[in-house]
Design a protein around this nucleic acid. Structure first.
Length: 422
DNA sequence: ACCGGAATTA
DNA sequence: TAATTCCGGT
């Protein structure tokens, strides 16, 4: 897709053209499968996965994948692809996070530290344009991987569960092989670089740097909500084909988005639909003052997903052989002038290719933080309440988080997923 | 080990 | 279309 669509979203400042995926809806109602980027967002919205993937605290719209392997695993569960690896997952993901802005001014080029940077919509940032063609680390994304907290890498138990499908949660294989995980509070030497995906660079102006959804009810400046939202989110039309039009505040001179409360409300509503679409527990849905989530017509059978996704895939068959007719014909490349993706992923971890969680597996799963709290609560998605969805103490610095302590710090009482015992 | 392309598939 | 998978290059 080198050629980005020429359809700028309404309200797109500077006439930026966002990636195609940003325009399309999450997925066709009942048709398309869940999109990877949506899945990522789901994880981001769940605290249960904060150990795997979470919003970066310093920067809004920036999230880090602490456990690429785990993310891949979860994704594999979701798609019933036991063989899913981060390598596989990263393929689409890379593209996913590849922006193809029309102006080619500031592509999200990851720095050496494996970070994705989504250039702020503000194209006139002096610092932004520092290096055309390459991501210019404004100030948020220096090329210091270590600055990130690789020093605080904790890999606690695997929170797994997740997603309203409530099917693949049974696995709970967790990463037993994870070994110590920071029991000493110090990451081993080289675990896996956390991937940082700064969506928007906005140096601390938002009180709650956890999720774009975790917006505080308090109005931003000028009575508008300063709700930084990731491009994917903000640009997701959703069922209502509503696309929030973040307007840059001329005053700030920076990439500060201002949403009207009303629009935001609408937007959140759309998000609610998404939640339902993907069987997300309402708890994940951010609360918004005055936000009412009317009966969404997008509800779908929750039991849609297979109870036992275990699918034995045929041997690799070695593919169809790429030796097709090769011949000399290939000299001509069909695709021409296709700007290659400029984003690179760095994470990578391949750890072990442990199998998924076959139902027959007698192996005991490691303990998970959620432990035995789940199961039951068949009310898929009836959970509401939960005030502090994202309300997390949020220590100023999350890296130094004590390994074990962090676990206990968060009550793992989310019965969201019912064990669904057949 | 990571990155990326490309063919295959749902 | 997007995702999955394979495979080669660096």
């Amino acid at each position: 897709m080198g050629g980005s669509r020429g359809s700028p979203l309404p309200g797109t400042p500077q006439g930026y053209h966002f990636p195609e995926w940003a325009y399309k809806t999450e997925s066709s109602p009942g048709s398309r499968q869940i999109q990877l980027w949506h899945f990522i967002l789901e994880l981001l919205q769940k605290e249960e996965f904060r150990h795997v993937i979470a919003w970066q605290q310093g920067e809004y719209g920036e999230f880090v994948i602490k456990d690429p392997d785990e993310v891949a695993r979860l994704w594999g569960r979701r798609k019933c692809k036991p063989q899913m690896n981060y390598d596989k997952l990263s393929r689409p993901e890379k593209q996913l996070f590849t922006w193809d802005l029309t102006p080619s001014s500031a592509p999200p080029v990851p720095t050496a530290s494996s970070r994705f940077h989504f250039p702020p919509l503000d194209s006139h940032s002096p610092t932004e344009d520092a290096q055309p063609g390459r991501f210019s680390g404004p100030s948020l994304v220096p090329s210091n991987p270590e600055a990130l907290g690789d020093g605080g890498e904790r890999k606690p138990e695997l929170p797994e569960l997740e997603d309203g499908s409530s099917d693949w949660r049974r696995g709970v294989d967790l990463m037993a092989s994870r070994n110590a995980v920071g029991a000493g509070g110090i990451n081993h030497q080289k675990r896996k670089p956390e991937i940082m995906l700064p969506l928007f660079t906005r140096p601390g102006i938002y009180p709650d740097p956890h999720s774009p959804f975790a917006v505080s009810p308090l109005p931003g400046r000028g009575g508008v909500l300063n709700v930084p939202i990731s491009p994917a989110l903000s640009l997701t039309p959703t069922l209502f084909s509503y696309s929030p039009s973040p307007g840059l505040s001329p005053f700030t001179g920076s990439s500060c988005f201002s949403f009207n409360p009303e629009e935001m409300k609408h937007y959140l509503h759309s998000q609610a639909c998404s939640v339902f679409n993907y069987h997300l527990s309402p708890r994940t849905f951010p609360r918004y003052p005055g936000l009412v989530v009317p009966p969404l017509q997008c509800q779908m059978p929750l039991e849609e997903q297979p109870q036992f996704p275990i699918k034995l895939q045929p041997p690799p068959v070695g593919r169809k052989n790429r030796e097709r007719l090769e011949s000399a014909e290939e000299s001509a490349t069909p695709q021409l002038a296709s700007p290659p993706p400029r984003v690179k992923v760095e994470p990578s971890v391949d750890k072990e290719a442990e199998r998924e969680e076959p139902p027959a597996k007698g192996k005991d799963k490691n303990e998970k933080e959620e432990g035995s709290g789940m199961a039951a609560a068949p009310g898929v998605g009836l959970e509401e309440e939960k005030g502090p969805v994202f309300a997390r103490p949020a220590a100023p610095s999350w890296h130094p988080t004590p390994p074990a302590s962090s676990q206990a710090a968060f009550p793992a009482e989310e019965p969201q997923e019912q064990g669904e015992s057949s």
